[in-house]
Amino acid sequence: MSMLSCRDVVMTAGGRRLLGPLSATFKAGAVTAVLGPNGAGKSTWLAALAGVARPASGQVILGDADMAGLDPLVRARRLGFMVQSRDIAWGVSVETLVGLGRIPHHRYVTLDDTTDAAMVAAALERCDLEALRQRDVLTLSGGERARVLLARVLAGGPDWVLADEPLAGLDPAYQLEIVRLLRGLADEGRGVVVTLHDLTLAGRFADRVMLLKDGRLVAEGPPDDVLTPGMLGDVYGVGVEVLTASDGARVVMPTRRTPRE
């Protein structure tokens, strides 16, 4: 299975450095959660890793290829990106929207062939959307929409799934549903990278955690090693208590705000 990594990546906007230099390696078959305060550069980093934003310097490497030199369609087949925004411009059917994930598999025109149909059907089934197949996407609830957008990514059959804040604005049931789907992707050998704000959920379902602050990677490792009161207090500027739930999982609870330097 391929590997996704970045080497000395620096991202800038309008001459201002947003991120880096940052080096990291992501493992296939695992969920990596990228955490950090608002403005730490999580989305910027994810966009660079997804190949949709070009680093000012440094390299993103997918498998054995430099992202900058990779054919965009080949990249798009291997790596799916779920952006934070759930805006959809036109009221198409759920099935049509999920079918957009097949775009990179055709170079010139998109004529749905049997493979496309099978992949779309599988993605719909996996995300439990078969009943909504013909529904207008604009009539869906936020949670249903999140599932449709994830199914869109899955329809492309990527080895890597990058998701920017996939849980934002969802109620607990939908959050757990998306988490279960992402976890399942990693368990079948795909690489999953997500940005999150929910520290407890990150601790529960991520295999690795990367902690970002001011555009730099300050900690990396298994959740138990990284999600410690000291580390989180330093990065988020809050007091943190780590409790243990009845099933033995860790519950990370921010208790009070401490002044940031």
């Binding site: 966009a47 997804a50 190949g51 949709v52 054919d71 965009p72 369609l73 080949v74 990249r75 798009a76 087949r77 790596l79 799916g80 990106f81 952006v83 925004s85 805006d87 959809i88 411009a89 036109w90 198409v92 929207l97 957009l100 994930g101 775009i103 990179p104 055709h106 025109v109 998109t110 957008l149 869109r152 492309g156």
Partner: peptide
């Protein structure tokens, strides 16, 4: 431009992630 217009229904970032120039 048909394919690109379809991809753009999810915004520019997603369109780019689908390999659209």
């Amino acid at each position: 431009t048909g394919r690109a217009l379809d991809a753009l229904m999810l915004g520019e970032l997603t369109a780019r992630s689908l390999g659209i120039d």
